[in-house]
C-alpha cells in the first residue's frame, strides 16, 4: 500500500509540473481579447495606472449595463471602473478583486446585488480554485491561437477601456413593470455559500482599506421585494451598507417602456444615465471620493471621455 501511495504521489507531482508548464504557455500575455484574456473588458482595469481608480464595482451584467464611470467623472471628477462580467459569480468577484486590488487602492468597492443570487453550487468555487492553481484549466481553449510569443513572451497589461467597464446598450424593448417591486414581507433566502463569499469579499476590501457596499441596480426581471428584504436583513447583520435602487423607483424614475434594452432585464443607456446620476449623488453625499478633474495626473480620464464622445454614439 505504501508503495502504491508513493507511486501515486510521484505521478501526480510530475503531472502537476507538466500542467504548470503548459499553464505558463497558455496564460494570455496581455489583458486584451486578442491575447485571449477572458472577461477582457473587466480586466482592462489592469491597464489603468496604478492607484488611480477610487471606486470599483463588481457584479454581473446588471452592473456593467447600469453604471457609467465616465458620467461620474464628468459630473464629479470621480474615478471608477466597473469590473463586472457576464454571469459573474461571487467566487469570480473575489478572484477579480484579488487581481484588481493589487495595484489599485479604491476608497470604496461596490458589489452589485444580482450576483448574490447567482449559482451557489459547490462546483463554482471548486472550478475557480482549479483555475487559480492551474490556469490551463481556464485557458485550455487557447491551443487554437497559440503564437511564438506565448512560449517566450512576458505577461504585460497594456489593454485599456476608455468606457471603464461600462457596456453601452442602446436597444429599447419595453418591459411589463405592473408587478415590479410589489411590497411583500416575504424573504428569498440567500444561498449560504454566497453569504460566505460576500463576507470574504467585504473583509478583503476592508483589509485593502476600501469601504464595502452592496448596490442593487434597477431590474424588473431580476429583483423583487423578497430579495430586497433578505439582503437588507443580511446587510444589517454584517454591517454592510446596502442601497437598493429598485426601492428608489420614484426617485430614479426609470421609464420601463423605453429605458430597458431587453424587457426589463437590463437598463439601456438612458436608464443607465439615471442610475449613475443617483449613484453619483449618493457618493457625493458620502463625501469619500476626491474630485480629480483639476489634477493633471488624471488627464488621461479627459482623453478617455473625449474618445467616447468622438464616437458620436452617446454622451
Amino acid at each position: 500500500m505504501k508503495k502504491l501511495i508513493l507511486r501515486f504521489i510521484i505521478f501526480i507531482l510530475i503531472l502537476f509540473i507538466i500542467l504548470l508548464i503548459l499553464s505558463r504557455i497558455l496564460l494570455p500575455k496581455n489583458n486584451t481579447d486578442e491575447a485571449g484574456m477572458n472577461n477582457s473588458r473587466a480586466m482592462k482595469i489592469l491597464g489603468e495606472e496604478s492607484g488611480t481608480v477610487d471606486m470599483i464595482v463588481y457584479g454581473d451584467s446588471e452592473a456593467y449595463a447600469s453604471i457609467i464611470p465616465l458620467q461620474l467623472w464628468n459630473d464629479y471628477g470621480y474615478t471608477s471602473f466597473v469590473c463586472a462580467t457576464s454571469g459573474q459569480t461571487l467566487p469570480d468577484s473575489c478572484r477579480i478583486a484579488y487581481d484588481t486590488l493589487k495595484n489599485q487602492n479604491p476608497k470604496i468597492v461596490i458589489l452589485e446585488a444580482d450576483t448574490i443570487y447567482l449559482s451557489s453550487e459547490i462546483s463554482v468555487p471548486v472550478s475557480r480554485v482549479l483555475y487559480e492553481i492551474l490556469p490551463i484549466m481556464e485557458y485550455h481553449n487557447r491551443w487554437k491561437s497559440l503564437s511564438l510569443n506565448d512560449f517566450i513572451g512576458k505577461i504585460e497589461h497594456t489593454g485599456r477601456d476608455s468606457n471603464k467597464g461600462y457596456y453601452y446598450l442602446s436597444k429599447e424593448e419595453p418591459a411589463d413593470d405592473s408587478r415590479y417591486m410589489e411590497e411583500s414581507d416575504e424573504i428569498e433566502r440567500i444561498p449560504r455559500l454566497n453569504k460566505v463569499y460576500v463576507k470574504l469579499l467585504k473583509n478583503y476590501c476592508e483589509l485593502k482599506g476600501a469601504e464595502f457596499a452592496i448596490v442593487s441596480v434597477p431590474s424588473v426581471n431580476n429583483w423583487n421585494y423578497k430579495r430586497h428584504n433578505a439582503l437588507k436583513q443580511f446587510a444589517e447583520e454584517e454591517g454592510i451598507e446596502f442601497i437598493d435602487l429598485n426601492e428608489k423607483k420614484d426617485e430614479i424614475q426609470i421609464d420601463w417602456s423605453k429605458e430597458t434594452a431587453d424587457k426589463g432585464d437590463h437598463v439601456n443607456y438612458p436608464g443607465a444615465k439615471k442610475v449613475t446620476k443617483y449613484l453619483g449623488e449618493w457618493l457625493n453625499k458620502k463625501n469619500i471620493l476626491e474630485n480629480h478633474k483639476e489634477d493633471i495626473n488624471y488627464n488621461f480620464w479627459k482623453e478617455d471621455l473625449n474618445i467616447i464622445i468622438s464616437t458620436g454614439n452617446y454622451y
Binding site: L22, N38, N39, S127, Y131, M137, E138, H140, N141, W143
Partner: peptide, 19 residues
C-alpha cells in the same frame, strides 16, 4: 506513464469545458 500523461493532457487541453 508517458501514455497516461498524454491522455490526461489531451483531455485537459482539448476538452470542452470552462467559462
Amino acid at each position: 506513464w508517458t501514455l497516461y500523461y498524454l491522455l490526461i493532457v489531451a483531455i485537459i487541453l482539448f476538452g470542452t469545458y470552462g467559462i
